[in-house]
Design a binder for these strands. Structure first.
Lengths: 202, 202
DNA sequence: ACGTTACGAGTCTGACCCGTATCGTATTTC
DNA sequence: GAAATACGATACGGGTCAGACTCGTAACGT
C-alpha cells in the first residue's frame, strides 16, 4: 500500500472512497492462490480478480502490476516473530529453530518454496526476502551472544556460521523436504542439542 | 529416453532413424535455457525447439510434453558425485559439503532453485528430486559411520540429524542465498569444524 | 527404385493472459 | 441534486503458447 490514502492532512478527496473490503479481498485472494499451489508466475491478475470477486480495474487502480501487488501481499504474510523467553539459551534456540518457516499464517509454509527461484533473479525480490528473514537472524544472533556472555557458549565460536548451522537443517526440511525420513516435529530439539555438543569423540 | 530404440533384439525399424544429434541438442537447449534463468513453467517447447535448431514436431515425436522432457533433461544433469578419499573423516566431510549444489555441470547450481517449488507439488517431481539427492545422502552417511567405527566420532550421535546439520547450511546458502554476509567459499570448512566441536562451553 | 520414417520449418486453432477502456451502478462531498 | 470517484462486469487488441498438422527434403532398409 505505498500510495494509499492515510496521510494525516487528507484533503478528503471527493467521490466514492476506495473499498477497504476490496483491498483485503485482493490480498487474501493472492495469498490463497499462492498457498493452493500456484507459482508466482502462473498467478494471473485475472485469476486474483475472479477469486477476490473484484473487477480487474479495481486491482490496476491500486497496483501497477503483478510485482507490486505481490510485494504488498508478501509483506502482509510475514506475521509476528517468535519471542524468546530469555531464561535458557538452549530453550530459546529450540524455540527460534522451531519457528523457522512456521509463521502465524499457515499459508506461509506453502508459499516460501515459491520464492526460492525469484530470489536469485531480481534484486528487488531478493531485498524483500532479506527484509523478512534478516530480523529473524538478528534475533538468533542476540540469543547466541547472550549465551556467550553468560558463559554457556564458548567465546570463540563463529556466530554467523552457528546461525546457519541451526537454521539450515530446519529450512531444508520445511522448504525442500530434504529427507523424508527425518521427523520434523522433534527436529528443533535434536538440531540444537547436536550443535551444542558437537559430534567429535572426546 | 523412456521408450527409445536401444533394446537388444531391435527389429531395426525401416525408414530414417532418429537423429542422435537432435536428441542431444534438445536436452542441451533445455538445460541451457533453465541455467540462463528461465523458470520451469516459463520454459516453452517453442523456445527449446528454436534454441536447439529443431522443429517442434521433433520434440513431440520423442516426449509427450514438457514434463516428460524435463524429467529426462534433469536426469542428464545430475552428473557424477564427489568421491571421498577415505583418509580423513574431516576432509571427506569438507569435500562432500563443498560439493553440495556444485555438480560437475555448472548449470546445476542455477537450476536447483527452480526445482524447489516443483518438489512440493507433484509426487513425480518429488521422486525425481529424491533420486538425485538420496545417493548423496548415502555417501555422507557412510563417511559418518566410518567416523564412528574409527572412533573419530562419538557412537551415540544421530547420523541423520548430523547429515542435515552438515548439508543444511550449505544448501540454504547456495540455493536460497540465505545470508549474503556469509562467505560461501570457506563455508564447508567452517561448517564441518563447527559441527565437529559443538558450541557449548566446556 | 521404392516405401518408410525422420527432418527443419512453418501454419493453424484454441487457450490464456495483460493492460486498457467502457458499460451501468453505487457512494461520497459540496 | 450535481460532480466526482469508486465499484463489478465485460469487451477489446496484442501477445504467447500448446499441439496437431502440412510442406518439401533427407536418410534408411529392401
Amino acid at each position: 500500500m505505498a500510495d494509499m490514502t492515510s496521510t494525516a492532512d487528507a484533503p478528503r478527496s471527493p467521490g466514492r472512497p476506495r473499498s477497504i473490503r476490496a483491498d483485503e479481498a485482493i490480498i487474501e485472494a493472492t495469498l490463497d492462490l499462492l498457498a493452493e499451489g500456484s507459482t508466482i508466475e502462473a498467478l494471473s491478475i485475472e485469476a486474483i480478480a475472479a477469486r477476490a470477486g473484484v473487477g480487474k480495474a479495481t486491482i490496476y487502480r491500486r497496483w501497477a502490476g503483478k510485482d507490486a501487488l505481490l510485494l504488498d501481499a508478501l509483506r502482509r504474510l510475514k506475521g509476528v516473530m517468535a519471542q524468546p523467553a530469555g531464561h535458557s539459551v538452549r530453550d530459546d534456540l529450540v524455540l527460534l529453530v522451531g519457528a523457522i518457516g512456521k509463521n502465524v499464517d499457515p499459508r506461509a509454509a506453502k508459499i516460501m518454496p515459491c520464492l526460492a527461484p525469484a530470489v536469485n533473479r531480481s534484486a528487488d525480490q531478493f531485498q524483500l526476502y532479506q527484509n523478512i528473514i534478516s530480523p529473524r537472524r538478528q534475533l538468533m544472533r542476540e540469543v547466541l551472544r547472550r549465551g556467550i556472555d553468560e558463559g554457556v557458549l564458548r567465546a570463540d565460536i563463529d556466530v554467523e556460521v552457528t546461525m546457519a548451522l541451526l537454521t539450515g537443517p530446519m529450512l531444508i526440511q520445511r522448504v525442500l523436504q530434504w529427507n523424508p525420513d527425518l521427523d520434523e516435529q522433534s527436529l528443533p530439539d535434536r538440531v540444537v542439542d547436536a550443535v551444542l555438543e558437537g559430534i567429535r569423540a572426546r
